[in-house]
C-alpha cells in the first residue's frame, strides 16, 4: 500500500519547522541527570501533522504552509518572503510567529483562504499545531513506522513507540492489581436512605 499524500517540498520544510519548534531534540533534566531525548522530527511527526491537516473537511496543508510564511513575514523583520521562509527562522522566531498568529497580530485580510479574515480558524489551527505535535509524539503513532502513511485502518504497530519510553508508559494493559478498597459503597448509602 502506497501513501496517498503528496506535499510540496517547502510545505514539508515548514511543517518540520513547526514540530522542531515545539519538540526539538533536547538534553533534559531527569532525576537530576541530563538525558538526551530525540525530537519530534526524528519520529517523522511532521508527516503526522500533514496527514492530519489533509484529513480536515478540506485539505489544509498547503494553505497552512503559506499562512506560516506570511505570518513570519509580518512578525520577523525581513525584506521579502518566499515559500518555506518560516522554516529558515530560528526556533525563537518560529515560536514568536506562532504567538503573533495566535494573537492575530498579522494582517488578517492578506492571509490565504480559508484563513483570510477568519480569526477563530486561525486560533484553532495554532492550537492544532501544539495539540497534534504533542499527541503524536506521546501516543503510539511513531510505532506505526513504515505504515504511518497508510490509510488509518491499515496501520500496524511495529515497534514500542519512543514516546512511551520517554513517558514511562508501559502501553495498553489488560489490568492492574492496584486495588486499595472502596471509600464508599452504594449499598451503604441505600441503607442510610432507608433508615
Amino acid at each position: 500500500m502506497v501513501s496517498k499524500y503528496k506535499w510540496s517540498y517547502t510545505t514539508q520544510l515548514n511543517f518540520m519547522a513547526i514540530v522542531d519548534a515545539i519538540l526539538p531534540t533536547s538534553l533534559i533534566r531527569c532525576n537530576s541527570n541530563l538525558q538526551f531525548q530525540y525530537g519530534g522530527n526524528d519520529l517523522s511527526l511532521w508527516k503526522y501533522l500533514l496527514i492530519s491537516f489533509d484529513n480536515f473537511t478540506i485539505p489544509l496543508s498547503e494553505q497552512t504552509s503559506q499562512l506560516l510564511d506570511i505570518s513570519a513575514y509580518y512578525t520577523i523583520p525581513t525584506p521579502y518572503t518566499y515559500n518555506g521562509f518560516f522554516s529558515t527562522l530560528s526556533r525563537d522566531a518560529r515560536l514568536k510567529t506562532l504567538t503573533a498568529l495566535e494573537n492575530l497580530q498579522v494582517p488578517l485580510d492578506l492571509l490565504p483562504i480559508p484563513y483570510q479574515n477568519n480569526p477563530s480558524l486561525i486560533k484553532n489551527i495554532v492550537d492544532s499545531f501544539y495539540l497534534l505535535t504533542s499527541f503524536g509524539y506521546y501516543s503510539e503513532w511513531s510505532g506505526y513506522l513504515y505504515t504511518r502513511g497508510y490509510s488509518p485502518s491499515y496501520r500496524k504497530l511495529t515497534c514500542f513507540p519512543l514516546g512511551w519510553v520517554y513517558a514511562g508508559y508501559p502501553g495498553p494493559s489488560y489490568g492492574y492489581r492496584d486495588f486499595r478498597g472502596f471509600l464508599l459503597k452504594m449499598e451503604h448509602l441505600h441503607k442510610e436512605r432507608n433508615h
Binding site: L23, P24, S26, C30, Q35, Q37, Y166, A167
Partner: peptide, 14 residues
C-alpha cells in the same frame, strides 16, 4: 509548555 520544559514534565508522567 513546549520544548525541554514539556519533555521534562512528560518524563514525570508517572
Amino acid at each position: 509548555m513546549v520544548g525541554k520544559e514539556l519533555m521534562e514534565l512528560m518524563a514525570n508522567y508517572q
